[in-house]
Design a protein around this nucleic acid. Sequence first.
DNA 1: ATAAGACTGAACCGTTCGGTTCGATCTTGA
DNA 2: TCAAGATCGAACCGAACGGTTCAGTCTTAT
Lengths: 215, 215
Amino acid sequence: MTALPLEVESSAEHSAKRRQIMDGARRVFVEHGFDGASVNDIVKATGVSKGTVYAYFPSKEKLFETLIFEDRRGQAERLFEVLDDSRPVEEVLREIGLRFGKMLIAPEQIAYFRMIIAASAKFPQAGRAFYEAGPRYGLARVTAFIKEKVRQGELQADDPEMAARQLLELIHCGASKPLLFGVTDTIPPEEIERAVNAGVATFMAAYGRRASSSA
Amino acid sequence: MTALPLEVESSAEHSAKRRQIMDGARRVFVEHGFDGASVNDIVKATGVSKGTVYAYFPSKEKLFETLIFEDRRGQAERLFEVLDDSRPVEEVLREIGLRFGKMLIAPEQIAYFRMIIAASAKFPQAGRAFYEAGPRYGLARVTAFIKEKVRQGELQADDPEMAARQLLELIHCGASKPLLFGVTDTIPPEEIERAVNAGVATFMAAYGRRASSSA
DNA sequence: ATAAGACTGAACCGTTCGGTTCGATCTTGA
DNA sequence: TCAAGATCGAACCGAACGGTTCAGTCTTAT
């Protein structure tokens, strides 16, 4: 290989052309997965020439890895912003539940999960990056929220992290699984709301101030 | 294509050669996914000639689909056998929780899930077949168990299916996620047990006879 | 023994794969 | 204006892709 990739500097890091390439690549990777995405299809989706793609990224692998690493959008941050511990706990949990539920069943999200999961054997660092920016980040935020609510006396939990894990599982309650396995394309919004309400009720039965200690 | 696949009769349905081919193919598909698995690698893994593979299956796609459809082993049946409603509810739930948890973190299982999830966009029927033999079957069994325990007075639940969904999520509590995303290769057994115990406690707090009605 | 069927291993096919090259053209900055 | 760098589109490369073919060998049943 005689053509070295462009030396990335701060300005080039955010160049429009580079972003254009990554946007086009993301579409193809999300649709076909890493192995199913051909470089020629990616090139078409980018709207630039193949030579230019290779001027920015040395290989298909590097393009994919870079995409996943830099795609750690503030999605989880925005989602968990509503964890305002000055408000009543059930109110917050219902709201976070609905936001979380809607996010987890969005078609783009399902497709993105599928792509990451599929690629995680070959690109474990990419899988890890995604996991830490998403699920783990969310868990940490919810754990902190629960700790504060325990301190305030609204909740009781010996193990706030386990409580947070349970909460996240309860409010979603596996609703996205049929989507992941291709069983259906849509989940009715009422289903999400139903799971959220039931999940919050169960969580409060176990961890609410009136409940017996659970852990 | 001049060579037609072998007409499948009852005996050929279970022929050793056909099984050999599918066993070899499964190994390669599970390791590399559908797109990442090459027919040449599959042929090597089967230990038969390429011509023979094509004598039994008309294409790579058909081989994959057939494999998934016929792989509906009685795994879920065996797992949920312990749902014996003549025993105390907590005892049964702990036991099913441990069995379920161990199954869901087994490396072969993780790899199989990954393969199915990855392929579900292109092969939704295969994804559905897997889902119905596994998660949906389990949910139905647990729902029936909960209904019976409600009838016996050990549990109370207005919505046994939602209760079953919650139970399945609680006893596992997302323990396999780090595996799916390639974050780690192993989950300590104590972690599974801990999640099971906490999950059963939360479930009983919400649905046990002494608990307030949750749904 | 013989014939039919199953299977083998090697070669083949047209197409696609990821990656490379390059003359021509465009863009940008001095 | 000019030169350097960026980009283009087309062609190319060797390897790999899924699928096909076939002479030879093995297996089985009569």
